[in-house]
Amino acid sequence: MNAFRLLADLTHLLSIIILLVKIRTTKSCAGISLKTQDLYVLVFISRYLDLFTRPLSLYNTPFKLVFLATSITIVYYMRYHKVVKQTYNKDSDTFKHYFLILPCAVLAFFINPKFTFIEVLWSFSIYLEAVAILPQLVLLQSSSNIDNLTGNYVFMLGAYRALYLLNWIYRFFAEDVVRWIPWIAGLVQTALYADFFYYYIKSWRNNERLKLP
C-alpha cells in the first residue's frame, strides 16, 4: 500500500458518493449514462467474484462490497425509481454499449494471466472498465449543460485511474511489481479522459460552466 493507491481508491469512492448525492438530493440522473453504469455493474461482478475464493482482506473486501452495492444501487435508481428514472436522458444515451462487451470478452479469452474462469473474468473486467466511460463521454458531448455534480463525478472517475498509474510506477520501482494487463488497460482508460480533463480544467480556471464541444 502506498499513498497513490490509497488516494486512488478514495477518489474512486468519492466519485461514487458524488453520483449518489446527486441522485438522492436532486432526485435526478440527468447527464448520467445508464449504459456506463450498467457496464460498471458488469465490471464489478466479474472482477469481484474472487470475494468467494480469496481470503478476506480488511482493506480490499469492504471496498469490493461497497463498489458492488453502490453500482447496483445507482442502476436501480436510474431504472426503477419513479422520479429519478424520468430524468434519464434516454434519447441522448446512444452509445451501443453491447458492442464493447464482446471484444473485451474475446480479448480476455486470449490475453489473461491464467486460463481459468476467475482469471478470464478478471481480465474481462479490466478491459471493460477501460472503455466503460465511453457512453458517458458521448452523452456529455450531446449535453448543452453539464451540472457541477456530473462534471465532478466524471473528473473523479478519471482521476482515480490516473492515480493508479502513479501507484503502478511507484510499485515498479519500489516493489519490482510488473502487471502488464492492468497497466496497459489503465493507460488506455486514463487516456480516454484526456479531452474531458482538458475542458474540465479550462472551465474551472475560467470559472465557467463545463461544456464539451
Partner: peptide
C-alpha cells in the same frame, strides 16, 4: 506468473 495472479488491487 504466480505474481500476476495475486490481484491485490481493486
Amino acid at each position: 506468473s504466480a505474481e500476476a495472479l495475486k490481484h491485490d488491487e481493486l
